[in-house]
Amino acid sequence: MVELVSVAAVAENGVLGRDGELPWPSIPVDRRQYRERIADSPVVLGRVTFESMLDDLPGSAQIVLSRSESAFDVGTAHHAPGIDDAIAVAESMGAERAYVIGGAAIYDLFQPVVDRMVLSRVHGEYEGDASFPAWDTAAWELVDTEAHDRFSLEEWTRRE
């Protein structure tokens, strides 16, 4: 069974995007740890997020959730119409884990089934039109926190 891990950068007020971009100035250290973490694994993302990353695609393969589009001009991209399909695609690749990387609707869709969350908690509150889904903190355990300049890296695991 593939381990599903949500990876996101989230402001203190839950915001993660504005107009398809990060609402805060770039944090190179965070971007680097994010890219290194997901580099060798498949990533699950929505079509709009996928299209916004075409110049620099993340992960070893992209599992693109889309109700309509089913073919992409990228050899590493795979279509999935839903959660079960996305998991099946990752399993067919022999992946031990797949990273859920957005956008907001995809995080929300996968929140009930992810096993872990790795969240970059960006210091400050920002205006935005996309937020990370709320979750029941009683169902999750914070297992690691790493302080950085301008953000803290948190790792959460779902309680049994």
Rank of each mutant, 00 (worst) to 15 (best):
G82M: 09
S152R: 11
Y126M: 06
L153W: 12
S92F: 00
V114H: 07
R37V: 10
M53L: 15
I63W: 14
L65C: 05
L22E: 06
L153P: 13
E127C: 01
Q62F: 01
I83P: 10
P42W: 12
E91N: 05
I87L: 05
E141N: 10
G59H: 12
S6N: 10
R35W: 03
V89C: 13
V2T: 08
R31H: 11
R31L: 14
G103R: 00
E3I: 06
R32G: 00
E155K: 14
P42M: 10
D73N: 09
Q62C: 09
R18F: 04
W140Q: 00
L16D: 02
A134P: 14
Y99N: 12
R35T: 04
A139Y: 09
L4Q: 01
P42Y: 12
G103V: 00
E127H: 04
E21M: 10
W135D: 03
L119Y: 15
P81V: 05
E51S: 03
I38T: 15
W156P: 14
S131I: 02
S68N: 09
S131H: 11
E127L: 05
D19T: 10
V74Y: 13
L57I: 04
L153V: 12
S6L: 15
G59K: 08
A8W: 01
F132D: 01
P133Q: 06
P58S: 09
R116A: 15
R31N: 13
R121W: 07
S52T: 06
E36D: 08
V29S: 09
D56W: 02
D40Y: 10
P112R: 01
Y34D: 11
A138M: 03
P28S: 03
R31I: 09
A88Y: 00
E12P: 12
E12S: 04
V15N: 03
E21L: 13
G46E: 02
S26H: 05
W156L: 10
S92V: 02
A86L: 05
R37M: 14
V100P: 06
V48L: 11
D115H: 00
R121V: 06
L45S: 09
A11Q: 04
R31D: 06
I106H: 07
